[in-house]
Amino acid sequence: MIELQHVSKRYRVGPEELEVLRGIDLTIRAGEFVSIMGPSGSGKSTLMHILGCLDTPTTGTYTLRGRAVQMLSSTELAQLRNQQIGFVFQNFQLLPRMSALRNVELPLVYAGVQSRLRRERAEALLAQMGLQDRIHHLPNELSGGQKQRVAIARALANEPAILLADEPTGALDSVTGQDIMQLFRSLNDTGVTVVVITHDANVASVADRIVFLQDGQVTDDSQQSGGSQR
């Protein structure tokens, strides 16, 4: 479903050219639970941006559900992010002045879903996250774990191809972090493709497959047998 072939990303920093990703080959199939691990500066954030269609590769090809992403215009990328990608960020990235419900509705708004359907879908998702009695709360009235659950509900709103999580436990205490990872685990069990980017080996170990990244290259790609903490 996700196929990266010889993907490179170069940035111009002053007179020098910085190569952040060097010829990444990576295939992720539907229903997988993958962790992408690496130290800071390894290029994992850049890889996430490319996977999330926030950025396009300098060279190489990225195919998402049969579409060649590097060929797309900014409007088409936006539509792809809306329909195929669900982002979960380290610092939640909820809109502070909107209730949990409105936050979850937002991707549906951009998808042009009619307001009644939108509300039903958002309420169902929040209920699924165990937040049915928090739907009208503003983000600052929620705990860290609750915020991240709202963010996950929002990421799932348009039933994306992949759930892309960037350090999803980074701003949470370890117990809550574990809870969130277990939530990803159970979502994956219902068929959602999950990609978690992290530098934390404990977090990464929840996934079925761990991809190591170093200096912009894949150094290891291993299936975990029973690595999950079910």
Binding site: T75, A78, Q79, R81, N82, Y110, R154
Partner: peptide
């Protein structure tokens, strides 16, 4: 700016 970034990540087009 951050709000704009969040909206873009959720699928807001430049036109939106």
């Amino acid at each position: 700016t951050q709000e704009i970034g969040i909206r873009m990540s959720l699928g807001a087009t430049r036109k939106a």
